[in-house]
Design a protein around this nucleic acid. Structure first.
Lengths: 343, 343
DNA sequence: TATTAGCACTCGCAAGTGATGAGTGCTAAC
DNA sequence: GTTAGCACTCATCACTTGCGAGTGCTAATA
């Protein structure tokens, strides 16, 4: 158990390190008004805190820096909530005043603003389309032998695929096909689309459509592999401006990681409400050892839609980021709900 | 005018520097079989080449490196065309064997492969949608007061926008509206869409649709601002692995630039057939001083669709990149044409 | 007994030094 | 016209040194 004085010293140490990125020494700390102790006392307490694993030294005679355990304790017990400044609120509002008319645009803009406000990198995971349901099917022939299939989901998302038309398929064939598809597939989840199509709808199509075999060989393929969650970045380069990434090697690693979208999903906790924080090696990715990730999620109505994350150095301004993320995820949810569910 | 010996020395110097990234000295050069002269002779020639502006020194007693003028001369006069290796050809073919069924996927994959083959960063500019024509219009209501408008172009591109429905608009109103839009707007260029809508179609809609005013206030806005060319990157981080970007400052500049999509377009020459090369400061962007950009373009049928670019250090392997870009742009054009125009 | 002053000690960092080697320009000989 | 020889230049690297910020320990102090 930590004494009050130890709590105070730990808190001030972390706060100071977050601000300056320099190891903090006892002398330096004792100068602060909040800390009415002499350097020697502070040194003793720091030695204890180090023994308990909350602080570390970079070398034998350096000041102390927080360990991961130290950050974790700080985040869990020493962080007092904070209200967003009106300046920040105004910036956040600006996303929604533009009346953008594509969800993707709104999400992208949100990512930008979050990154600008925090000076860290933001990642927004778009909705997982596979969990949405078919609202409408449509097929538009482009030439005599190619067409584009369009699926509109109940979330307003539009998916489209090119596929080849077999020779000699008539316009009425296509019309019939569209009718059957709409009748059979409306309300089906996108991740079940292919299964339902093959198992249930195929038979019906076979009865009514000429050229069934050739049609399905190209249409069926087009319908497979629904798109995964899209990843939107804000301020990819922002991270590089923080001193912990002055090392070229680390910087390269980070940028490379961000280029590989498949790794990104491991950064997110499975969609849960609320704010989640992963510090340093709590992120399993090796390149992220020096980073912390704070995630939140946004909803449409009651439904979980996607996630928001901020990536910063472990030495990030947790208090501010948490506040901003909290406000932003709420506002984004409200805006998307308003657009898609009516005001 | 350059003597043959000077041409030879310039060529070998540039070749060598491209390979090693080290200033090349006279002694080193004279060891090569292609250069049957003593170091002293080479020094004299190099001094002349420097005087003429083709070579530079990094400091008084260093070897020579090519100047921008040197690269320009090398590219214009000393570069002999090369055939792609069968290994490269195979890699390139792999893009098209997957039978991807979205143009965007194909373009994205192309970007990846190009970057992998060259170890530089590739940029592909997607089609400029504004130059395409409306093929079909469609409106799908989501809730009682929101809907998504869908535009399919003759190139198979699908554009979609959310907009608000006024209260009390009936299903038959919407049907009428879609019919009118299709009748009036089919064949119109996307960049003219808003103008035509306001000037010509509006009157017709007004006659037939109740709630015309409210409808148009939200629908009209949704139809404005057609999407710009999308930018696809391949291997953003690849550039950072080349020694010229070991400097953290330069690396940051580059990454930041790539994040700002609006700057990217300045890298491309206005769509022209053929390969174009910009060396160092020929790119107007300051961050690109140490880079060269090689661009090509791809077509569908006879129509210019978009551009392909490779960004590398000025010391890039021009010969190889030119070859790959040439092959790739041709193959991409053929593939897109095949899909969209029939085989 | 808890706190603090004092002191010897540690270590990173930056500046300075000198040796090394790859390179040059010039001159004179071939 | 070409080349060997030589004095000179400059980046780089390993090495030293001094400085300063910081520590741990001990003894004095409130």
């Amino acid at each position: 158990m930590l004494t009050n004085r130890q709590l105070l010293i730990l808190q001030v140490t972390v706060d100071d390190f977050i601000q300056t990125a320099q190891p903090v020494g006892s002398r330096q700390l004792s100068k602060k008004d909040e800390v009415p102790f002499s350097p020697a006392t502070i040194r003793n307490e720091m030695a204890d805190l180090e023994e308990m694993g909350y602080l570390e030294k970079t070398h034998t005679s350096s000041g102390r820096i927080p360990s991961e355990k130290g950050y974790r304790f700080y985040v869990d017990h020493l962080l007092t909530p904070q209200l967003a400044t009106s300046d920040d609120m105004q910036q956040i509002q600006s996303v929604f005043q533009e009346r953008l008319n594509e969800t993707e645009q709104i999400i992208q803009k949100t990512a930008m603003i979050l990154s600008d406000l925090t000076s860290y990198t933001s990642i927004l995971l778009g909705p997982d389309v596979r969990k949405h349901r078919v609202k409408r099917f449509s097929i538009v022939p482009l030439t005599t032998d190619s067409a584009v299939a369009i699926i509109i989901t109940d979330s307003g998302h539009v998916e489209n695929r090119l596929f080849q038309l077999p020779q000699g398929l008539t316009a009425s064939d296509i019309e019939k096909m569209v009718n059957i598809l709409n009748e059979q597939l409306t309300g089906v989840y996108l991740h079940e689309l292919q299964r339902v199509l093959e198992k249930e709808t195929a038979a019906l199509l076979k009865q009514h459509i000429g050229r069934y075999g050739e049609l399905m060989s190209s249409f069926g393929v087009a319908m497979s592999n629904p798109q995964e969650e899209k990843v939107f970045y804000g301020g990819k380069s922002k991270l590089l401006h923080h001193p912990e990434f002055n090392d070229l090697h680390k910087a390269r690693g980070l940028i490379t990681m961000m280029d590989q979208a498949n790794q990104i999903s491991t950064l997110f906790s499975p969609n849960q409400a609320g704010i989640h924080i992963r510090i340093g090696s709590e992120n399993t990715l090796l390149e992220m050892e020096a980073c912390s990730v704070i995630t939140a999620s946004y909803t449409i109505g009651e439904e979980q839609m996607g996630s928001i994350a901020i990536i910063g150095p472990t030495r990030m301004d947790y208090r501010r980021v948490i506040t901003l993320l909290d406000v932003m995820s709420g506002d984004l949810s409200r805006e998307l709900t308003r657009i898609l569910r009516g005001s």
